[in-house]
């Protein structure tokens, strides 16, 4: 058994706010293996974003430990271990799509001669070949989000952390992007951490589904997804799919019952 790519042990994070301390993460332990596609699901405020941000070294835990590829999150970031995709595409309007994808390459100091190859490759991966010279406002919301995924992939990180990347998109576009994301994951063997509010999305995409619950934010269930890796969109109507979706729903309900 190989070492986990992301290893969280008894993570605690308390934010000190004006209204008193907010316990965003409590005793969170989780191992994510190489090539896993792990979805995080749970009601608003349960700490999904916070967990991803701790892994990405955007937030410091107040207790416990995380390691990414056996390093601290900061070291992992410097080693370009992960790409982070935010809910909002956040493309720069003054740069073309190519220019946007080039941005992390410039910042990380990739040699100029390599830029073109990197950009071409990730544009292919997200199916945006031919749109490189366009400006963000010339693209639909779904295409912009694909461009932002391409940007996160541009520097060959092995881990992709995605915080509700499709949350602002309509259902049809979302289905399409889910399909593409699976394809991309299959081709690239990345390890993916994916936050969502949608049960079908979580079940369709992941190898494992982490169910969380708020106040304090904690993991209440981890569900292994037994669906095959090959997943056409209509797998969502099969009994196996509905069975897993049901288990996720139960897990969410159980987490809530705790509360009241």
């Amino acid at each position: 058994m190989s070492e986990p790519v992301i290893k969280a042990e008894n993570l605690d994070l308390t934010f000190q706010t004006n209204d008193g301390p907010v316990h965003a993460l409590k005793d969170v332990s989780l191992d994510i293996m190489k090539g896993d596609f792990v979805s995080f699901i749970g009601p608003s405020g349960c700490g999904k974003t916070t967990f991803l941000r701790v892994v990405a070294a955007l937030e410091q835990p107040t207790g416990g430990a995380v390691s990414v590829n056996g390093m601290s999150p900061e070291e992992a970031r410097k080693a370009r271990a992960y790409g982070y995709v935010f809910q909002h595409a956040g493309l720069y309007p003054w740069r073309t799509i190519r220019g946007n994808i080039q941005l992390p390459l410039e910042i990380m100091g990739f040699p100029k001669s390599e830029w073109k190859d990197h950009i071409d490759r990730v544009l292919d991966l997200v199916d945006l070949r031919g749109f490189g010279k366009k400006f963000p406002w010339q693209l639909s919301g779904g295409m912009q989000q694909r461009a932002s995924i391409a940007r996160a992939l541009a520097f060959d990180a092995d881990i992709l952390l995605m915080d509700e990347p499709f949350g602002a998109l309509d259902e049809i576009v979302r289905d399409h992007l889910n399909e593409q994301l699976l394809e991309l994951w299959d081709k690239t063997h990345k390890t993916i951490g994916f936050v969502t509010h949608s049960i079908p999305e979580a079940v369709y995409l992941s190898t494992r589904i982490v169910v969380m619950s708020p106040r304090p934010g904690r993991i209440t269930d981890v569900i292994e997804n037994t669906l095959p890796r090959e997943r056409p969109l209509d797998i969502r109507d099969t009994p196996e799919f509905l069975e897993i979706a049901h288990r996720v729903r139960e897990g969410l309900r159980a987490g809530h019952a705790y509360d009241d």
């Binding site: 955007l58 982070y84 935010f86 956040g90 992390p104």
Partner: peptide
């Protein structure tokens, strides 16, 4: 904040 965080994830 998101744009600044994004820069941080690239160690800018």
């Amino acid at each position: 904040a998101m744009q600044m965080d994004q820069m941080k994830t690239w160690s800018a």
